[in-house]
Amino acid sequence: MQLAIFIIFAILCIFGSILVITLRSAVSSAIALVFVMCVIAGLFALVGALFVAALQVIVYAGAVMVLFLFIIMLLNLKEELISEDDKKFTRFLGIVLGTAFLFELAFFVRTALMRGSEALYEPVPKTLSSIAVISSELFTKFLFPFELTSVLLLIAIVGAILLAKKKNEK
């Protein structure tokens, strides 16, 4: 049962990502990416990482991708023209390398799990709700990175504003 759902999600995911990298229009790519993120959130939920799934939808799909769309529309990007692309070899090489990389990863996975893939699916114990556990970890074991991340976000905000500000030329 889980397997079937997983396969559906996986196919959707892969299809979506291929759409992301192949669609000509930037907006279309962005929408495809949003789709992929939602599917991935579904995957997270499938295995019981509910908090992360929610996070994925809210932050990633909801905020980051919206930001992307804003910028795309701000920059008024035209459709990418294929015809004057004279770096066909680079493309070809890129696909080849990517595939080679994939096969290598697969190889690693195979050897690593030679013992046979164990049954993964187990319902997350009700006593251990994912939010509670994550938050308790965050504020004890990962307190320092947590605080740092907040500083990082501050820096990102300030940086983004400063960078994108129009300079007053008078």
Binding site: T90, F101, L105
Partner: peptide, 11 residues
């Protein structure tokens, strides 16, 4: 591409 090339070779 060069980067990936290196990664592939090392792996």
């Amino acid at each position: 591409v060069t980067f990936m090339f290196g990664v592939v070779i090392i792996l």
